[in-house]
């Protein structure tokens, strides 16, 4: 494989992995701090993307498009991301309030089921209110392609990767430096005792869901920019995979979730050229749609050798019944 070819795919993989990583963070935070599987999170990503669509359309109407625009496209984009993150955070808070808080003392599996059901409700509501067609996401910034030594990079790809990594770093700072962040980490360590020393469990839970959902919204908008078609089931296919990435990263590890997300993206993108190369080398005819099969076999292999995930600590909790 030529270096160029590899680099080209690596950049695609980074972009693809950013989506997984941003979504995986939401799963991972809820899982680490509240020990819950938030199966609604994939659909929150979908809702975030649609909110982003709505916000950007409104903003474009206000500021105008093309040459007559009051402000350049990137300003609209930044505003869209920020406003959508803010709005989607509330979706997360509502999900927590309706689906998870009433089940605080219930078996954890029951909460996972309510999450799953809320996810279905979100998808259905989308179809109900928006008619279920796929919608085009407005291209807020003009696409430009740079040729760096034979590797083609678009400005969008760079922007997506940079924004994602920026958000991850911001989250890392928040969790390690701020008072609330530290409270969250304490809660992840022990959510029985920590509330006793004055850290309110409900506030932490709300914050966890809000931050996770905001990140999912950012992922949704970035996804809309690069694959400009939204559909109500985008959260299902993406979400479950990101969930696997989150767990693969290990409980209680922000870095783990990010790296596992990027890794999953990398594996998924790389299997197609990988299969092509193997086919050429050994004169085989393996179908390139084996992507999922190979990606999850690798995931399974990693989990078999590292059952607590890439960066997780061993622990002995299990679903409380």
């Amino acid at each position: 494989m030529s270096l160029n070819f590899f680099m080209q795919n690596l950049i695609n993989a980074l972009q693809w992995g950013s989506f997984y990583a941003l979504i995986a963070l939401g799963y991972s935070m809820v899982y680490s701090i509240l020990m819950l599987f938030n199966f609604a999170h994939g659909d929150i990503f979908m809702v975030g993307a649609y909110i982003g669509l709505g916000v950007s359309l409104v903003l474009l109407k206000v500021v105008g498009t093309g040459a007559a625009a009051l402000v350049p496209g990137w300003v609209v984009l930044v505003a869209t991301i920020l406003i959508s993150m803010f709005l989607t955070a509330f979706v997360g808070i509502i999900v927590e309030r309706v689906g998870y808080r009433p089940l605080r003392d219930a078996p954890r599996a029951s909460a996972a089921i309510t999450g799953l059901m809320i996810g279905i409700i979100l998808e259905t509501s989308n179809i109900l209110f928006l008619g279920g067609q796929r919608l085009a996401f407005p291209q807020l910034i003009e696409s430009r392609t740079y040729n760096i030594g034979g590797i083609f990079i678009t400005n969008k790809k760079i922007m997506i990767v940079v924004v994602s990594i920026g958000l991850m770093l911001a989250l890392h700072q928040f969790v390690t430096r701020s008072r609330w962040g530290m409270a969250m980490r304490a809660m992840a360590y022990d959510f029985v005792v920590v509330p006793l020393v004055g850290v309110p469990l409900n506030t932490i839970a709300v914050m966890t869901f809000a931050i996770g959902s905001a990140l999912a919204a950012a992922a949704g908008i970035l996804f809309g920019l690069s694959y400009p078609v939204l559909d109500p089931y985008m959260g299902v296919s993406f979400g479950w995979k990101a969930f696997v990435a989150a767990i693969l990263g290990g409980r209680g590890s922000i870095m783990g979730a990010c790296i596992a997300g990027f890794m999953l993206g990398f594996i998924e993108i790389m299997t197609v050229p990988g299969i092509q190369i193997i086919n050429r080398l050994f004169a085989l005819n393996i179908g390139s749609n084996l992507r999922d099969l190979i990606a999850y076999s690798i995931v399974l292999a990693i989990l078999i050798f590292r059952p607590h995930g890439l960066f997780g600590e061993p622990y002995s909790a299990k679903l409380r019944l």
Binding site: F37, K241, N289, D292, L300, Y315, S316, K318
Partner: peptide, 29 residues
């Protein structure tokens, strides 16, 4: 692999397995 350790790993491994099986049948011409 799942019952070697305690914890939530059955949930994840079984989920990955579901994707694998589905993909396998999609590809077995």
């Amino acid at each position: 692999p799942s019952f070697k350790t305690r914890g939530d790993y059955l949930a994840i491994i079984s989920l990955a397995f579901l994707f694998i099986i589905k993909s396998l049948f999609e590809n077995l011409q």
